[in-house]
């Protein structure tokens, strides 16, 4: 059974009285456990919309989204928040760390909303900070960290709730190529440990490191290549 299945998924945005944007026109995609997929396509092709729907940040206009055996297409706002907090790990292009929190506190945010005790949160975040090689800089605030370090914190945060699936949106887009490679090496490592990863990217070199590339154009999946 697939870990995540998108069935005939559509998404239309009503922008005005008679302006309707069809962002997705019936997507079918199946993600197996431990798969490492890249979603590629030009801007406006709908790849971010796919990621938002897979991340339960948005609901499809029609079609089904089955995540971990549960149909989450019609869940309410609170239930979707719960799903995001427990089953999804997000990594963003612009890191999206909370500026007033230290790296450790940032890593703990998902656990905070699951009501995990402070001591357990701290133990888990320290463990992850160690694993991503943050070391003594874990008590610094994002402003005091380099881009690479910030993205490592974001990766640790995406792992902290032990999610079913990790969704990364252009994770190397704001990094220089050397740092980008380090981050990608971290992704390879996660994949080799059995994590399920979906990565949205423009970069063919990034796509080649994955198990397969899903190409999107005009709200449709145009090809699904295996590497």
């Amino acid at each position: 059974m697939s870990l995540a299945r998108l069935i005939e998924l559509t998404k239309t945005y009503v922008m005005g009285a008679d302006v309707v944007v069809e962002a997705l026109r019936g997507i079918n995609l199946s993600v197996e456990e431990g798969q490492y997929l890249a979603i590629m396509g030009p801007s406006g092709s709908g790849k971010s919309t796919i990621l938002n729907l897979m991340g339960c940040l948005d609901r499809p206009t029609s079609g089904r989204y089955i995540l971990g055996g549960e149909d989450v297409s019609d869940l309410g706002d609170a239930a979707l928040s719960e799903v995001r907090g427990r089953r999804i790990g997000f990594i963003f292009q612009s890191f999206n760390l909370i500026p007033q929190l230290t790296a450790l506190d940032n890593i703990e945010v998902p656990l905070f909303y699951q009501g995990v005790h402070r001591r357990d949160r701290r133990r888990r975040s320290m463990e992850l900070a160690e694993r991503i090689g943050l070391g003594p800089r874990a008590r610094h605030k994002p402003m005091e960290l380099s881009g690479g370090e910030q993205q490592r914190v974001a990766i640790a945060r995406a792992l902290v709730n032990d999610p079913l699936i990790i969704l990364a949106d252009e994770p190397t887009g704001n990094l220089d190529s050397k740092t980008g490679k380090e981050i990608l090496a971290l992704f390879d490592d996660l994949s080799s440990r059995g994590r399920t990863l979906i990565i949205v990217t423009h970069d063919e070199a990034v796509g080649r490191r994955t198990h397969g590339i899903v190409r999107v154009a005009d709200g449709n999946i145009v090809s699904h290549e295996k590497n």
Binding site: L57, A78, E82, Q114, N161
Partner: peptide, 16 residues
Amino acid sequence: TREIGIRRALGAKRRD
């Protein structure tokens, strides 16, 4: 606003 978006993405409910 951004912080609110981050917290919501990471599992914060509206009432949180």
